[in-house]
Design a protein around this nucleic acid. Sequence first.
DNA 1: CCCTTTAATAGTCAGCACGACTATAAAAGG
DNA 2: CCTTTTATAGTCGTGCTGACTATTAAAGGG
Lengths: 239, 239
Amino acid sequence: MDGYDKYAHEPFAVTVDLAVFTLRDDALHVLLVERGQEPYAGRWALPGGFVQPDESAETAARRELAEETGLSDVSGLHLEQLRTYSEPGRDPRMRVVSVAFAALLPDAPEAHGGSDAAEARWVPYGTAGPLAFDHDRILADAHDRVGAKFEYTCLATAFCPPEFTLGELQRVYETVWGTELDRPNFRRKVLATPGFVEAVPGAARLTGGRGKPAALYRAGTATALHPPLLRPTREGRPA
Amino acid sequence: MDGYDKYAHEPFAVTVDLAVFTLRDDALHVLLVERGQEPYAGRWALPGGFVQPDESAETAARRELAEETGLSDVSGLHLEQLRTYSEPGRDPRMRVVSVAFAALLPDAPEAHGGSDAAEARWVPYGTAGPLAFDHDRILADAHDRVGAKFEYTCLATAFCPPEFTLGELQRVYETVWGTELDRPNFRRKVLATPGFVEAVPGAARLTGGRGKPAALYRAGTATALHPPLLRPTREGRPA
DNA sequence: CCCTTTAATAGTCAGCACGACTATAAAAGG
DNA sequence: CCTTTTATAGTCGTGCTGACTATTAAAGGG
């Protein structure tokens, strides 16, 4: 941290890149923007932008989140720093260090772009071709992190509306993990974890479809899960 | 990622900060340097330095690790990116964004500083007064991360020499977690996890002290623990 | 109006991982 | 030789979990 004179010769640009997830039609979607300029013109990329002089990376990420989703209030949304990508060649034009974030939205507002000129669109996860820069890697890392955090935190409720059924919550897990879960066991586990969900006192609402109407729940106050809710054992889980 | 012209006005300095841990005399130690200049002159700080133009943050971190520990070969050491600290005011002189890393050393070589003029010293964790900048926060985050990773990875062997006894491995856990573990249960758990440790075929060595000589083990090939080795339940684990 | 379909909810049962605990073996030190 | 110390072996009961069956309450179709 001494020898500041070294720096003056080679400054860095610092950006944030956002992997914004939501659930639409029981499918995981990611918010992507189409690049208009070289390099990677015409390719999809993660939304992001430069960190301004008076901002922390977290502040910049939340600002970008508001701009790209078009939402007026993003203060309650889950936003989490992933890691920083700093390979020298990751942007062919110049030296850019990018702090990556993951964000989770309950519902997918079709509106996008806000006042920003960039076209932001919800794209089903995995369907967009190779992304610009190292964004494929960032997106994969973000997905891994979210899936892992589902095991030992209450993060899954961040994908749900304020009131939801246990079936909806289960489908969140199944969609993100890409597996199927046993319904009775999932109920037992969720209800046995204090603070994970709390029942909405009076009413049970029908979800609109057929079948017995389901009870409604709200997200509880807990954030961690003890013991964890492990995904179905893939034996010999690799490094 | 468009509008690069914005950047030219306000560049950032990018540094790495390292939380380097080792175990000495059954106590967790951290590598710290004493600052010679303002700000925070005379205060302890985490070792670190600027990321050079041709380096990634990971490369810079490993270079700094070698310089500060004085070790000739740091390629096998565990080095892991923590997160990035970017609050605008964290360095009073200028805008510095720092990528923090955690590193784990098996033995504590007393040598330090290498060719670097900075005095690097091993200090028992928790005994150094308030550190410079936001390094208290970084160090606490690093400690939390290492403790958490002990639960579901084989990371603890990174603190051990090439061959070690199960008692030594247990003391690593106890030191990092600050708790006591039941010895038979710890043995059972470690030995039941395939790939965690592998027995050294022939010999059992005495650790030098009294008591029955212990069998020697090497770190296995596994990196993850399934199921995890949870620390003694602190009820109602907070957020 | 009944019967099928769909989904939610309730409950059972066995396996196994883990915490707590006791017992034995093999060394050093007095 | 006896005590202390540490490693290793084994036991027992509880609780979580996976697999599975049963019941309830709605919609839809004939």
